[in-house]
């Protein structure tokens, strides 16, 4: 059996100026065909104006098991949120 075409992750930027967003994955032999396949698989209805593809094997992700310690540093820093600071009602534009 021939080896399988590598897996690519597909990211699309929509018309509205938002960042590229992950939409799914597909198989393709190289980057050029990955972009072409992504157009056919993920943008059949004007979903985007730009496509990024990256080999799935090249993605490094945080481990789900480390979620607690990884995000712990920000958990106790409520003062990072503007709502932490009560403002007097009569003061405007804050």
């Amino acid at each position: 059996m021939t080896p399988e075409w590598p897996l690519w992750e597909v990211f699309i930027r929509s018309l509205h100026g938002l960042a590229h967003k992950h939409v799914g994955s597909l198989h393709a032999p190289d980057a050029e065909l990955a972009v072409k396949n992504a157009r056919d698989v993920y943008t059949r209805r004007n979903e985007g104006v730009s496509i990024w593809v990256v080999r799935s094997a090249d993605i490094h992700a945080s481990a789900p098991g480390d979620k607690a310690p990884l995000f712990e540093p920000s958990n106790d820093k409520v003062y990072r949120h503007p709502t932490f600071f009560p403002m007097p009602d009569e003061v405007k534009h804050l």
């Binding site: 021939t2 080896p3 075409w5 032999p29 190289d30 065909l33």
Partner: peptide, 14 residues
């Protein structure tokens, strides 16, 4: 099958 093989061979060569 031959298309899948040829595309892979082309990608390897490039």
């Amino acid at each position: 099958a031959w298309v899948r093989e040829a595309a892979l061979a082309h990608a390897d060569k490039q």
